[in-house]
Design a protein around this nucleic acid. Sequence first.
DNA 1: CTGAAAGCGCTTACAG
DNA 2: CTGAAAGCGCTTACAG
Lengths: 340, 340
Amino acid sequence: MKRKVTLKQIAKELDVSISTVSKSLRNSLEISEDTRQKVQAFAKLYNYKPNNIALSLKNKKTKTICIIIPEIIHHFFATVISGVEHIANENGYNVLVCLSDESFDKEVINMEMLANGSIDGFIMSLSKETQSKKDFHHIVEVINQGMPVVMFDRVTNDILCDKIIIDDEHAAYNATQYLIDKGLKNVALITTIDYVSVGKLRTDGYKKALKNNDLIVDESLILKIEDIDNFEPQIEELLKTKKINAVFAVNEIFAATTIKLAHKLNIKVPEQLSIIGFTDGIISKYSTPGITTVSQNGVKMGEKAAKMLIERLESEENEEEEHYRTEVIETELVERDSTL
Amino acid sequence: MKRKVTLKQIAKELDVSISTVSKSLRNSLEISEDTRQKVQAFAKLYNYKPNNIALSLKNKKTKTICIIIPEIIHHFFATVISGVEHIANENGYNVLVCLSDESFDKEVINMEMLANGSIDGFIMSLSKETQSKKDFHHIVEVINQGMPVVMFDRVTNDILCDKIIIDDEHAAYNATQYLIDKGLKNVALITTIDYVSVGKLRTDGYKKALKNNDLIVDESLILKIEDIDNFEPQIEELLKTKKINAVFAVNEIFAATTIKLAHKLNIKVPEQLSIIGFTDGIISKYSTPGITTVSQNGVKMGEKAAKMLIERLESEENEEEEHYRTEVIETELVERDSTL
DNA sequence: CTGAAAGCGCTTACAG
DNA sequence: CTGAAAGCGCTTACAG
């Protein structure tokens, strides 16, 4: 086992100073051609690579960004990571992935831990608990320290920073309108509790679409799921007792489950029941029938977020003008076989 | 914007030495109760947190581990990350996630980049390209430097290190036997090309099961998928032209696609065709019908891998005895509705 | 009880 | 052209 070689060791071996070695390796013209060659050859032979930590300490930047997501199991977040990775790597950055598990405490701990020099900036989507508590002090603190933060998807107006979102309300409006245009008037909504920002917005879009088409918003057709581990009975109840011919689900798990239950209850999809989901993930794609869905374009969100963050990191000079941007990513309706 | 406060600044403010501040904050008995109190109060007020990078440099450990996976989009890998995160956080480690995108070069670059002090150890699953090239020099190098590596799932015998695997052959054997026990004699296999280690092993298990039941291995019923982006026609061809009543698919994407195509060809699942997949991911769970599958238990693999790595990191003293272990994680057959 | 010094591995302004 | 010194932020053995 040969441990990593350092400048010091090379200097000793070659009987020159550490400065000379360092400069030679960086090809400084200050050093004679001869010495440079010698040092470089030696370094290559011993497979010298500068120690990243030492560089980070010296440069006060780590070339690492952290993405904090609530859950990796949600395919949408996995696609965002993939987008972030892509752009980060292209620009020489590493990506640290942290999971908040939808917990406020874990989010806080992660941020406090990493804000102490480990990383250069954050990309994050708020945990459910944070959204319900509306306590964002940890984020404010980090930003006040001068560390840039880019929020995506689950964001809040209470924080000033760069943001990447989709127009959730508009996308939901369009999805609902799509169903109405097919002649489906009894559209149920399966959504999350209101404090999840995107759930709320999608609900608003759904309602607005109904109203604009002179349809009545029947609150009994709106299912707000609280417990992600036990919601099947509620959906089954809805399908059994309500007269509906379409369902707009706020994520793909709700959509896929609805198909499963419809199948069980002998309701034909899409003939008797049309279903639209949200998030174009693998479930929607590989489900039978394939699920018509609003594509959130997670990869693109991740790429944009990484771009914004890196831009801010690399232009840190002009700190005076803190012109925060909110970028809205286009969504599109992917038509498959779960709708008429 | 208040920048992070350092020991130096505190020392200056309080008119003591940096050493005194450092010791006070670590509650050293060397320092008078009085001074300690004063320093601690001040540090708290200014929300002092030690700089992680400086600590890393000093301690020669970063408390960060890196997991390199071929693809985050595969749900299995996402679950592994989740397991790794869990154990890592519990032990005060951060997790850096790197994607190789199934590319040898990206794998090499990532490892070389991070092996220079940025992290303490690796957890990895080989990229397809690496497996086909059989070039593992980058991994050998890292290990020789004294950095521990734990491999999982896609491993190789050419490298000596800790490993976490499942008994792929055995699991495939059982899945095939399960189908045979249902009276299904014409079992097709949809697998990957042989150089993917797990694909090969699962194929072996399938063949062995057939043989042990005195059934003939018909190579024309074995579909080896090379191009992950365009395999539907091949499966459709298989379903159309071959007399089969069961399919064993080596991952859940192949399984779900088979269901989709069966549906299209009006073949009833499971009445006319039973299907078993591999990897108990969200596709299998939310598909209609739910897919019977071999559960790989990614979370557990991740947890085990993290445990092994951290153990090795924290017991680095006894370097002489390099007793590498290979841990085999139990799999189980999750019965759902895609099989008789 | 307090502090100066050395050191982790590097870079760079400054002397010579 | 080369090297000693200072410094990034911290810790700790050693003096006093």
